[in-house]
Design a protein around this nucleic acid. Structure first.
Lengths: 261, 261
DNA sequence: AAATCAAAGTCAATATGTTGGACTTTCGGA
DNA sequence: TCCGAAAGTCCAACATATTGACTTTGATTT
């Protein structure tokens, strides 16, 4: 190891363990290969292997049958003992439901987790044609959904690029889109502050998405309206984005309030 | 440290880190004091402190303002990247809803997490007087709810005793009950295989609870029917318990199927 | 079916990071 | 203001982690 300039009463092994766990979190339920983790953490293979073996013995990690490592249900349970970054999502439902009532379409609130967007809430509007492509509590890769586009646009460019690059190996994650197409879309989201796309999650469904501003860094929440493309004309989208941003600000307010304890 | 008889390519620090994290999980969002963790893990204070400091720097752990340590939202997010021990709880809803339809009352499915019961599902029956004391996604201390009684009864006695002892410091967790009263109740649950109690979560509300058998060890799920005491007479309870056990068996079946991948 | 290659897994000599007893500081209660 | 309990710090001793080099596994190709 190179000289560590940082003074510390910190444990090197713990740091490395955290790095590995964090990295595994990115790979979700599919799991990461040993070599993925060594490359991404910069640690030597035996080191990663030993830590993984130990985490496995503690059942924090499981080895899948195709020699991948993923976080185990024990980690899920541990997570439940920790406060959610947004507090109780139900506190946010009124805001999202109000938006759904206003626009008549289906509105989602999604939270970023590693390379994925976890859909916390889905609220229905009154418009009779409903798009139910994603359910509450579902998790979609950031490159696979509308909310993911807003979230990717909000994070540092190299981080987003890293996620897209890595996802490119699994072409099916992109559906009708392509990695390069997505890069362009995200660039547009960065410029305009909202995303509009169709046929992303499902052919014949369009989505409008905005990131929820986060005073402490990159957004980890996004609000998305899902509808049929005919209902999301540029004019209407313009108006909706205004409402969405208002709702987003409200969400920020509520989350900040419940987090400051 | 005593001699470690076990050969290993395991990392001591990782083992210790896991022990600390697991222990912190037990304490939930209130957090644990340094001394709690040193006592319960048997590690020296400087060691625990150093590991906690590192976990804090990695933001896996946060220090509350009253000098307690608790798992951070980062852990919550990590947990979302791991598979839930029960797979998607929505797959279990039909079973619980069917039971609710059958009995007419409110039925819960709860999962154990550390010292707590996390309520996954709440299904409504048709009976007009409804008891809505607990919401879905809420978390209650094991000593504070009906499901917790079933879960405590299912675990090794010393583990249950440890949880009750520790909880005894916070008398308010017990509501109208007392630690000793609870111990008796739980002994009854062990003998009869179900729990009946009133005024636990709320005065004027009664609950009937059974553990969901887990082929791989102690139950971590419980089914609970909540109603007014008049509706849970001994005779009716007897009949309901039969239905609940059938539902529990069905839950076991579904969970086992979705876990075997 | 054999060959090939990439990734996983193992080992052990070395040096590095970890350990915990003893000391100091902080905080909450009286 | 004082007091005790818990938190936090330091450093010499040494147990533990580290990684280069080696072996094994399993998937893919010929």
């Amino acid at each position: 190891m190179a000289a560590d300039s940082e003074r510390s009463d910190k444990s090197q092994v713990v740091e490395r363990t955290c790095a590995i766990l964090r990295e595994m979190g990115r790979y979700g339920q599919r799991g990461a290969r040993l070599i993925d983790l060594t490359e991404r953490t910069g640690l030597s293979r035996p080191t990663v292997h030993r830590i993984l073996t130990t985490l496995g013995a503690e059942s924090f990690v499981q080895r899948t049958n195709d020699r991948r490592y993923r976080l185990s249900p024990v980690m899920y349970e541990l997570g439940l003992a920790a406060p959610s970054p947004v507090g109780d999502p139900e506190k946010l439902r009124p805001v999202i439901q109000a938006l759904a009532n206003q626009c008549g379409d289906t509105v989602y609130l999604a939270m970023r987790t590693g390379d994925f967007a976890h859909y916390l809430l889905r609220c229905e509007g009154a418009y009779p044609i409903r798009t139910h492509v994603v359910a509450a509590n579902q998790t979609l890769h950031l490159v696979s959904g509308h909310s993911g586009r807003a979230l990717l646009a909000s994070m540092p460019e190299d981080e987003a690029e890293d996620i897209i690059t890595r996802a490119s190996r699994d072409r099916h994650l992109f559906g009708e889109a392509t990695p390069d197409g997505l890069r362009e879309e995200i660039e547009k989201v960065r410029q305009k502050g909202f995303g509009w796309a169709r046929d992303v999650t499902f052919v014949g469904v369009a989505g409008l998405t905005v990131p929820v501003p986060n005073p402490r860094g990159a957004a980890y929440l996004a609000i998305t309206i899902s509808s049929i493309p005919q209902r999301l004309t540029p004019d209407r989208a313009q108006a909706l984005v205004k409402d969405m941003r208002a709702a987003a600000a409200e969400v920020t307010r509520i989350v900040s309030a419940s987090t400051a304890s």
